[in-house]
Write a protein that binds this DNA or RNA. Structure first.
Lengths: 240, 240
DNA sequence: TGCTGTGAACAAGTTCACAGCA
DNA sequence: TGCTGTGAACTTGTTCACAGCA
């Protein structure tokens, strides 16, 4: 399962979102209603990819469809939830409660699935003690103990870029399995000491980092506005 | 220049950020100081890629380095700014001023370079007339006229997902060249009418969409925590 | 017949070895 | 000598044609 293209995983997330919409549409309709089924071409149209791609992507995880009929919306959704690891509970801490951290904390949809925000951390005295989303902001010094006590799985990192490496280090040392990094820097999976980079450190072993970088998005956008891709993503194969 | 891998563009953005740090470090030092130069291996270490990759990426845009010496920090930075289109002014509107939109509007670093926020739009009566970042929120109905008058280049889309397609449509019709989409949906480059998808519409011709989707990031993270990539990204070639 | 499943052809992107200039 | 520049090998990911099941 580790030989699945990483790009395919991003697309699975998209398919899942589409299926949720389709399942809402199908809700309450009789089991015979075609709304409970979706073909690769229809999924592809919603996801902005080709039907080939959809079939290939889904196929990495088994025979999820029915030939001649398509994919059952409910079954496929459940399968994707399982594949993406969204059928278990994930305990999350948020580090950094400036405007961006607050926006994330309150973003609707983030606590769907089994994501639970269990702790909020910052170093700003003005924020500590403040309540957001039923939780009280604690000092980052408390992080290590908290992660172990509360079995925290992952941390969202929304501190200013100049503190991001340090805060990431704290999360990794504390033992989280993954970090969702919102800061516009590359997190180094090693202890960063004064005057240069030190070797890959043990506490980073197995820690996954995913980046969500909107400044980078802005800059990619300016490039592509000035250098438009040649192909115009025409409608491929069938598009329902 | 359109045959540059899209992944390379993302990496250029990273290199640029690193160069900015290096240029700050070099500031004030005499022109002979080695701090004004950086080798592919050092850039690679900071960016978390291989030195080969750095050289290849930079090479797409000409001979930017000096053999035996490395890359001049200042020269390379200026080159990357040019390549990425960051040497011109970009007029930006933000559509959607909920918590996320506000966080984006106020995010430090976003208005570096030549990005100028020139207009803020929302449909929520409670927000219209409010001031953020020296601008007053207007109703989205004003968007089309405003984009033309003010020569707006791109729009940042931070409305709730259920209104995102509609708002994106408004931006595209108004004539922006690019959309930075924060909503967790796939923007359809076509008019979406009731009961199904209509054909690719003319006003979308050439409009570039870049996505910044943090919910997707969360879900990719859970997948990779449960299915860690095999390779451990060892230190490649030289790493200074 | 109508769709998915999937091996094989193809394309894109990355790694590498070494050529080539300061 | 020490680095970048770059064609060629390789690896990864995508497209496709058609086999295979309901």
């Amino acid at each position: 399962m580790s030989d699945v293209p990483t790009a395919a995983i991003s697309r699975l997330v998209t398919y899942l979102r589409i299926l949720e919409g389709l399942e809402r549409d199908a809700e309450g309709k009789p089991p015979t209603d075609p709304a409970h089924w979706v073909k690769s071409g229809a999924l592809a149209a919603h996801a902005g990819v080709t039907a080939f791609q959809v079939r290939k992507d889904l196929n990495y995880f088994g025979r999820l469809g029915t030939r001649g009929t398509g994919y059952n919306v409910h079954v496929l959704r459940r399968e994707l939830l399982r594949v993406l690891g969204l059928n278990q509970t994930w305990n999350v801490v948020i580090v950094g409660l400036g405007r961006l951290g607050q926006a994330i904390t309150n973003y609707p949809g983030a606590t769907d699935y089994q994501f639970q925000y269990v702790g909020l951390f910052d170093t700003n005295p003005a924020l500590i003690g403040t309540r957001f989303h039923h939780l009280t902001v604690q000092h980052t010094d408390e992080l290590a103990a908290f992660v172990q006590e509360q079995q925290v799985d992952m941390g969202f990192l929304a501190v200013p870029p100049e503190h991001a490496q340090e805060a990431a280090q704290a999360l990794a040392s504390a033992g989280v399995k993954g970090i969702l990094n919102f800061a516009p820097i590359v997190i180094q999976p090693r202890t960063l000491e004064r005057n240069g980079i030190h070797e890959l450190s043990e506490e980073w072993r197995g820690v996954i980092v995913e980046n969500v970088d909107f400044l980078a998005g802005m800059k990619r956008l300016t490039f592509y506005i000035r250098n438009p891709p040649l192909k115009d993503a025409a409608t491929p194969e069938d598009t329902e």
